[in-house]
Design a protein around this nucleic acid. Structure first.
Lengths: 257, 257
DNA sequence: ATATATACTGTGGTCTGACCTCTGCGCGGT
DNA sequence: ACCGCGCAGAGGTCAGACCACAGTATATAT
């Protein structure tokens, strides 16, 4: 059942490779973690040049479906679902994503995530959350350490939600947000207050109180947004003035290395 | 400012190309719709082989940041933000995304989208929505036509939300869901009732009643989920039994073309 | 003069086959 | 038992020729 006409690759050789692999994955012939045959060999068996095979693999690798390790081999991704974070940030600059939009998306997703985590979270998640909260209290005098456990906490919540799709989405957004945050100065957030909010969220989740978890998470994020000096207002204004150089052409001089 | 260590491509030549382009984009030297120099020329100027250049471009193209048109040239993507839909479906089979999870994600995102659309929708959106509703009523005896306008309606709502990030996310999920739906039989949904629900949503949006729009959309989606014979229950059960062939190896025989 | 072929040019797509680099691991020396 | 050297396997890069497609200019027929 040859699947033709994917989306962008207007090419067909590479597409053939992609579809072949896709089929193998869908049929369960290839499972996460599996290694595919060496390029030369695989290329021969598929009757395409190694170059084309590589193009196809590159396509899948770029999407995070496959993982290529120089000198070792090519494997099917096995980690948690993960959309192109690189893609997201690129798309961001390209389409002028703004902080307030990211925050809005995060707020919506994560508040629901917290509610779901409260409904479905398992003991292991509760334990992991407790650990992170503890770590946060212990790292209140070390912002860079603190932020790590902050992220971890939110990641665990997303896993506890039981919906890998939502988890993957929020993960993508968070990483983009993290990139931005890392660039700005380590603002003087009140880490103690932050830690306490996390603790409350944790308690709500453990107590299986979805609505409360949802509300707390929402509150926490709103606070984080303003506290971290989101220039949302400024962004919003700047947005209009920008984005109006629609003419298209190339300036080889500036592009040339 | 060389950005090293992207994510997956452990290679450096191709990465060099990606970073170079990334920088050009971030600096505004390349705007959406722009055409980059011909491969041969560009490769020479970057001092890499054409093959490596192509690898890098392929990476960006796979993420939807660039658009390659055979016989024409390579351009910076200019359409609306769009994450790898292909990626999503691949990831789906790979991580066993299930329908109920997709629906859950859709429900959360789209209900908020409706609320935001009610808050921020502009006249143009209202008009477009009205058009689609009209088309839906006119295509009630033609399911395949109907579904097109159904999708269009939801897409317009996402645009009216004013948050391109959320719009892109829901778009990705919807396309995955659409793929699934297309495969199953054209269920006998009550198109008239569906059309009327859309009309009500439209009215709530036009009347700028966020909460009502939110509620209606939620209701609509829940109904759609059950009406379309979601095998959520079955899925859920099947999920557990599956996914336990963790051993990893290759069966060249079955992989070979 | 208009319209339909046809040829040309520019650009991406594929192929070949040789060579480079990295990883992992085994063999041998200490 | 330990360390290090080197081989083998796998991916990464390269060069250059050639193929395929799209758009345009040109020639030819009506």
């Amino acid at each position: 059942m040859p699947r033709i006409k994917q989306d962008e690759p207007d090419t067909h050789r590479a597409m053939h490779v992609v579809n072949h692999l896709r089929t193998l994955i869908e049929n369960g012939d290839l499972l996460p973690g599996d290694k595919i045959p060496p390029e030369r060999e695989f290329a021969r068996s598929l009757k395409v040049s190694r170059a084309s095979l590589r193009t196809g693999i590159g396509y899948l690798a770029a999407m995070g479906v496959m993982k290529v390790r120089h000198g070792v081999g090519t494997f099917i991704a096995d980690g948690p679902a993960e959309f192109g974070k690189t893609s997201f940030s690129l798309m961001g600059v390209l389409h002028g994503f703004q902080s307030w939009q990211m925050f809005e998306a995060r707020l919506i997703l994560e508040s629901h995530l917290a509610a779901l985590a409260a409904e479905r979270g398992k003991q292991e998640h509760h334990a992991a959350l407790a650990d992170e909260v503890a770590e946060m209290f212990g790292a209140m005098d070390n912002p860079s350490d603190y932020i790590v456990h902050d992220l971890l906490f939110h990641r665990i919540v997303s896993q506890a939600s039981g919906n890998p799709i939502l988890a993957a989405l929020i993960e993508t957004i968070m990483s983009a947000l993290y990139d931005k945050r890392r660039k700005t100065v380590e603002r003087s957030i009140d880490l103690r207050e932050s830690a306490e909010m996390h603790r409350e969220i944790y308690r709500a989740i453990r107590a299986r109180k979805p609505e409360e978890a949802r509300r707390l998470m929402e509150e926490h994020l709103r606070m984080a947004e303003t506290a971290q000096g989101m220039e949302s207002a400024a962004d919003r204004k700047a947005a209009k003035t920008a984005r109006m150089g629609k003419t298209a052409r190339v300036k080889p001089s500036s592009i040339t290395s």
